[in-house]
Design a protein around this nucleic acid. Structure first.
Lengths: 160, 160
DNA sequence: GTTTCATATGTTATGATATAACATTACATC
DNA sequence: GATGTAATGTTATATCATAACATATGAAAC
C-alpha cells in the first residue's frame, strides 16, 4: 500500500530547491554529486539504504564506491537535509530542513513509508523526563514502527 | 567517568535470577549458553556488541560463532530480558523484564552507560501524537544520547 | 528406558553495512 | 596562473548480521 497519492515530482523539486537555497545561505557546497544523492533519497517516501543509493548512482553518474555515497550522506546529514533511520540503517529526506531538528519518525511496516513528526508535547515530555534524570540530551532518536493510516484502513477493509 | 557506584555483582545476580524465574514461568528454556550470554551482557551498564560478546564467550565457553551469539540474543530479546540499542548496534540488559516493554534509553556519550526510563508522560505523548496521525504503533525506539548526570557534573567541575 | 520429535547448537560460508587510508581532482582566492 | 583547501576517486578492509545445513540435546509418549 503506497502512501497518500500526490505529485511526487513536486516533493523532489521542492526539496532540491530548498536544499540549494539553504546551502547557498550557509556557504556549503551542494555539488552535483551531493545533489544527485539527495535527489535519489527523495525519489521515495521510504527510507533507502546506502548501497541502494550506490547502485542508482552508478547507473546514472558512472563510477562510484561506498565512500562516495557515505561522504555525500554525511554532508547531507550535517546540513539537516536528510535523516538517518537508525533502526533501518537507511536514509530519508527531511521535509523541513530549515527548522530545528530531531523529529519523530513513523515507519510503516507494510508500505515502508516514513513520516516525520515534530510533536511539541512529545518533545516537552522528553525534555522533562531527561531533565529529571539529570541527563543533558545532545541527540534524539525516536522511531515508531507500525501501520500508517492508509495501511490500517486497508487492513480493516480486508479483515471485513 | 563510570556510572554511579554500586555493587554490580548484585545487578548481575538479580538479573539472572529474575530471568530464570520468568523463563520457568513461561516454559522458555534459559539454557546455559543463553544464561552465559545474558551474564556477559549484564557485566556492564554500557551496551555491548554481538562480536564483543562472541569474544568473551569463546574465552569462557570454548567454541562459538556469530550465529551462536545472535541466536542467544534473539531468544533474550524475545523474552524481554535484553534490549537492542538501534543507534549503537548493541545490547543492554533490561532491569525490569517482567513489566511492559519499550522504554526510553539515555546513552551517555562520555562514559558509555545506558539508563532505561519508562516515563508515562513520554509514552502518553507518543500515543497521542501517533493516534492523531492515524498510525498504529507496534514497536518504539527512543534513544537519547548526551551526558549523564555524573558526566555532566564532572564536566562542570573541570570547566571550573 | 528407548523411541520420537521439536528445539537448540555447531559449523561454514556469505551477505550487508560502514570506514580507513591515501591518491587525485576541482575550485575559490590571491 | 600559483596556491591551498575541500571534494572526489580508489583500493582495501573492518564491522555487523544471517542463510543453510549438520548434529546434538532434552522433554514427552510409548
Amino acid at each position: 500500500m503506497a502512501a497518500t497519492r500526490h505529485d511526487h515530482r513536486r516533493c523532489v523539486s521542492n526539496a532540491l530547491g530548498a536544499a540549494a537555497l539553504l546551502c547557498r545561505r550557509r556557504g556549503a557546497r551542494l555539488t552535483s554529486l551531493r545533489a544527485g544523492v539527495l535527489e535519489i533519497v527523495w525519489r521515495g517516501h521510504a527510507p533507502i539504504g546506502a548501497y541502494a543509493i550506490l547502485e542508482r548512482l552508478r547507473r546514472e553518474h558512472g563510477q562510484a564506491a561506498p565512500p562516495t555515497v557515505y561522504r555525500a550522506l554525511d554532508f547531507l546529514l550535517a546540513q539537516g537535509l536528510i535523516h538517518r533511520i537508525e533502526s533501518m540503517n537507511a536514509f530519508i529526506g527531511c521535509p523541513r530542513p530549515a527548522e530545528a531538528h530531531g523529529g519523530q519518525f513513523l515507519l510503516c511496516t507494510l508500505c515502508g513509508t516514513a513520516a516525520e513528526l515534530a510533536d511539541k508535547r512529545v518533545e516537552a515530555a522528553l525534555t522533562t523526563a531527561t531533565a529529571r534524570a539529570g541527563f543533558r540530551v545532545e541527540a534524539r532518536v525516536v522511531e515508531l514502527r507500525g501501520l500508517c493510516r492508509v495501511c490500517t484502513a486497508a487492513e480493516a477493509r480486508h479483515a471485513g
